[in-house]
Simulated scan of single mutants.
Amino acid sequence: MEVEFIKLDVQHKQEVLELFNYYIETTTAAYRAQLVNEDFFSHFCESGDTYCSFAIEAKDGSLVGFCLLEAYIPISTFSKAAEVMYFLHPKYTGKGIGALALNKLEVEAKKRGITRLIADISLENVGSIKFHESNGFVEFGKLANIGEKFGRTFGIIWMQKELSS
């Protein structure tokens, strides 16, 4: 499937929030327990600790998902590391779009002198863990039963990828 990466902007606000809230309501992939509103949208846009963010659109202009690259820890000591985040509409997973999004974020990271990408993933999100493993990420830590959502606890895995120059 062909997609376009468009700088995330206010025109994407409603669809991005609906997608993110879907993951909040139905999975532990989005850690929050409460739905987010329009005020939260600025977190996804290029401001503060977010280096870049993109809406992922199909050729017909419909939202497929969104992705962003943000500071791992927003202090100069960690300026070579960035965290990746992407959420795809469920009907578009498994179609190679996640790999395109990761590639886009890797290109953007290299432009910014970032040499390490970090993903923190719910241990319940086996598909995402496998995706990251198959795209060069390696595990560097787990936190068992650190989160609580839907009346149960869940853990997270930290994965890292070294970028070549």
Rank of each mutant, 00 (worst) to 15 (best):
V3A: 03
E4T: 14
I6L: 15
K7R: 08
K7M: 08
L8D: 03
L8E: 04
H12Q: 11
E18M: 12
F20C: 02
N21E: 07
Y22S: 04
Y23I: 00
Y23G: 04
T26H: 14
T26P: 01
T28W: 02
A29Q: 05
L35I: 12
V36K: 13
V36A: 01
E38I: 03
S42A: 11
D49M: 07
C52V: 15
E57I: 13
K59E: 15
D60R: 01
L63S: 09
L63M: 12
A71H: 11
Y72Q: 02
Y72E: 07
Y72K: 08
F78N: 10
Y86H: 00
H89Y: 03
T93G: 04
K95W: 08
A99T: 15
L102Y: 09
K104D: 05
V107N: 13
K111W: 09
K111L: 14
R112M: 03
I114W: 02
T115H: 09
V126E: 15
S128V: 00
K130N: 14
K130F: 06
K130T: 11
E133C: 07
V138T: 14
V138D: 11
E139H: 04
K142R: 15
L143T: 02
A144Q: 11
A144F: 09
W158Q: 07
W158M: 10
Q160R: 01
K161D: 05
E162D: 07
E162N: 09
E162W: 05
L163M: 00
